[in-house]
């Protein structure tokens, strides 16, 4: 059962002539932290967005805890799209560009989906929100408007917004790529705490140091395919394929620069 926590079966997705996903399959056990790396346009973001059916794949299936999230073979009925919304609430998603809601203050950003999607009472939603905002270090900002937050604060708010739905799985799409180097640390701290709490996570990132320290598994994708897969330290120190070697060589220069600043 545990090995079947999240099952991704044979995903295909094309955008015009480009294959963003070419027969990608993946099994994730509960509590596992999986990092996905690869050059831009390799399909790593598409993989994440296919898991919660935000970008429906052309072919393939996704199962969460033994339940079918989506299948390309069956048409999306009204009943199924209702179910899908429930699955999405259980799969918290964090975007590169934060996508916090600028018309709602910090507290309301975390409260709104609890009311609308999870149908919680306002009092319950607010106490959950306060608890989680405290965890991400935004307890002093609850009345602030997102426009007045730094990038790091915005991303922590976005993480809090997802966590408030009690997700069993977190999907993070380059959560630190849009941040200035000195703001990356505060977001990584929040993510480390999630790892320590046993959250199952799929993280697309360029932070190789973070991946090798906290990842249970690392996936290297290129051209819509998983090229290498295994324990992060092993993969990063002993790349088997030429493509990964080249990718790491290019990335090394920039990532070391980033780490120096940290």
């Amino acid at each position: 059962m545990t090995s079947n926590f999240l099952e991704i079966k044979g995903l295909h997705k094309r955008f015009g002539n480009i294959a963003a996903l070419n027969n990608v399959s993946l099994n994730v056990s509960k509590g596992e932290v999986i990092f996905v790396i690869g050059p831009s346009g390799c399909g790593k973001s598409t993989l994440l967005r296919a898991v919660n059916w935000l970008t429906p794949p052309d072919k393939g299936e996704v199962w969460l805890e033994g339940e079918l999230v989506g299948s390309s073979s069956s048409k999306l009925t009204i009943k199924q799209s209702q179910l899908l919304n429930g699955f999405r609430a259980r799969m918290g998603m964090v975007f590169q560009q934060f996508n916090v809601w600028p018309h709602l203050n910090v507290l309301e950003n975390v409260v709104r989906a609890q009311l609308v999607v999870a149908k919680r009472k306002r009092a319950d939603a607010e106490s959950t929100a306060l608890k989680i905002l405290d965890q991400v270090g935004l307890q002093n900002k609850i009345d602030e408007w997102p426009d007045h937050l730094s990038g790091g604060q915005k991303q922590r708010l976005a993480i809090a917004r997802a966590l408030a739905m009690d997700p069993t799985l977190m999907l993070l799409d380059e959560p630190t790529s849009a941040l200035d180097p000195e703001l990356i640390g505060e977001v990584l701290t929040v993510l480390k705490r999630l790892v320590n709490n046993g959250m199952t996570m799929l993280i697309v990132t360029h932070e190789l140091g973070f991946a090798s320290e906290f990842g249970d598994r690392l996936l290297f994708m290129d051209g819509g395919e998983v090229i290498e897969e295994g324990p992060p330290k092993k993969i990063l120190t002993m790349p088997k394929t030429k493509r990964l070697k080249m990718f790491l060589e290019k990335l090394d220069v920039t990532s070391f620069k980033k780490e120096e600043k940290l």
Binding site: L54, R88, A89, G92, F95, Q97, N99, W101, A118, M165
Partner: peptide
């Protein structure tokens, strides 16, 4: 309104109308 706003709302489980 930036596209990411709709995506983030859909990703958290809201229906199109919500």
């Amino acid at each position: 309104v930036p596209k990411g706003q709709l995506e983030s709302a859909r990703a958290i489980g809201m229906t199109d109308w919500q």
